[in-house]
């Protein structure tokens, strides 16, 4: 049951990811990426990480993709639709990608560290409560640093996108 669902979600995720890269129109890429993020959040649910699944949908599908579509709407992408798709002379990049994928797959399949079929039993009790206790107790400093980074990004984005006043 789990395996069937995982294969379904993984297949749709890979297909939509291919559409993201292969589509000529950036709007089609953005919509395919949205579908891919939904599949990935379904995989998170299968991994018993419901909080991450919800955060994935909120942040990626709800915020980031809407931001992308908003920018695509603001700027003229008709020229981008016409432009040459995958221009020639990319042989080194293709060889690099094939080598990278083959290397990672060989390492994953030949190692016995990845052969675990049963997940370790999670301690009983409220998992989200334990997760947030760990986050706000042991990882409080990184959490605060992340909030400062978000603030800096907010200010930076406003400064970058502002019209030059002279």
């Amino acid at each position: 049951m789990d395996q069937g669902f995982f294969l379904l979600f993984a297949a749709v995720a890979v297909i939509t990811a291919l559409i993201v890269v292969l589509a000529r129109n950036p709007v089609h890429s953005a919509l395919a990426l949205m579908a891919c993020f939904l599949q990935i959040s379904a995989v998170f649910v299968l991994l018993e990480a419901p909080l991450l699944a919800v955060v994935q949908i909120f942040v990626y599908v709800g915020a980031i993709m809407v931001l992308f579509l908003f920018v695509i709407m603001m700027i003229d992408v008709r020229e981008a639709v016409l432009q040459r798709f995958l221009p020639g002379g990319n042989l080194p990049a293709l060889v690099l990608l094939v080598l990278l994928g083959a290397e990672m797959l060989v390492l994953v399949l030949s190692s016995d560290r990845f052969s675990a079929t049963e997940p370790a039993a999670m301690g009983g009790g409220d998992q989200i409560r334990e997760l947030s206790t760990t986050l706000f107790a042991d990882y409080l400093l990184p959490f605060e640093v992340a909030s400062v980074i978000l603030l800096a990004a907010l200010v930076g984005a406003i400064v970058l996108a502002r019209k030059e006043s002279g």
């Binding site: 915020a63 980031i64 992340a146 980074i149 978000l150 990004a153 970058l160 996108a161």
Partner: peptide
């Protein structure tokens, strides 16, 4: 979180 920050700056 870092991705959200990166996307905001990159789209700017």
């Amino acid at each position: 979180a870092i991705t959200a920050a990166e996307v905001a700056v990159a789209l700017g």
